[in-house]
């Protein structure tokens, strides 16, 4: 449905905004490398089923997400490594990995490798933006492109919520994916303060600065 397609394209747009920013400004300043590595982990653990993905739509997106994320990490770790400031990227990701790992082991739908890794990926994605938001907090401001990147990334999962509501009412056979919905709501909530600042500042063409 339209919400999900818009969400997936918003997700794709966020990746291309980020790529554009890094290549245009030849710098990855203001971008959290830790968050990018977490997203790489999210894609790898979620798309283990890539070889037998049924729908071409999903297959293409999975390949796009994995390949573009790999390229972003290459750019940040190799090409533009000097513009990477690890002293600003100090969020303790072990807490996030522990959070996702614990929930994946406690509440998977089934105790199979695919399901446990999938649950891990869903919970990890819900908190993977924290290092990036934390870095934003520390620098107190961000380039417009970085703000657009975070906004598009936040919008992607926010749009999945109406998608789930739409499917609940329109598809009689649709079963509520409680893990994805719970994590999706948590993820969107984590962006809420950013969205507020983004909306009030950037929409007025101002520079993205925290109050």
């Amino acid at each position: 449905n339209i919400f999900r397609v818009l969400g997936d394209f918003s997700h794709l747009a966020s990746i291309f905004i980020l790529l554009h920013k890094i290549q245009q400004l030849k710098s990855c300043s203001g971008i959290s490398f830790k968050s990018q590595v977490l997203y790489m982990l999210v894609y790898i653990t979620r798309y283990l089923d890539l070889p037998w993905t049924s729908s071409p739509y999903n297959f293409i997106f999975k390949v796009l997400f994995i390949s573009s994320e790999l390229y972003i990490i290459y750019l940040m770790a190799r090409a533009y490594k000097p513009t990477n400031d690890p002293n600003l990227d100090t969020f303790h990701v072990e807490f996030l990995l522990g959070f996702a790992g614990l929930l994946a082991l406690l509440f998977p739908y089934k105790y199979t490798i695919l399901e446990v890794f999938w649950a891990f990926s869903i919970w990890l994605e819900s908190v993977a933006i924290l290092p990036q938001l934390f870095m934003l907090q520390r620098t107190g401001e961000a380039e417009a492109m970085t703000a657009h990147y975070i906004a598009a990334l936040g919008m992607y999962r926010a749009l999945y919520i109406p998608n789930w509501i739409y499917r609940y009412f329109s598809e009689p056979t649709h079963k509520v994916d409680t893990i994805a919905v719970t994590a999706g709501i948590l993820q969107t909530i984590l962006y809420s303060d950013f969205f507020w600042i983004y909306y009030t500042k950037v929409m007025r063409g101002e520079k993205f600065k925290l109050p």
């Binding site: 999900r4 997936d8 999903n58 999975k62 999938w118 509520v176 994916d177 409680t178 893990i179 994805a180």
Partner: peptide, 10 residues
């Protein structure tokens, strides 16, 4: 609670 078997979403 449904089982999330159908991984039809990204």
């Amino acid at each position: 609670v449904a089982d999330g078997g159908s991984k039809d979403e990204l």
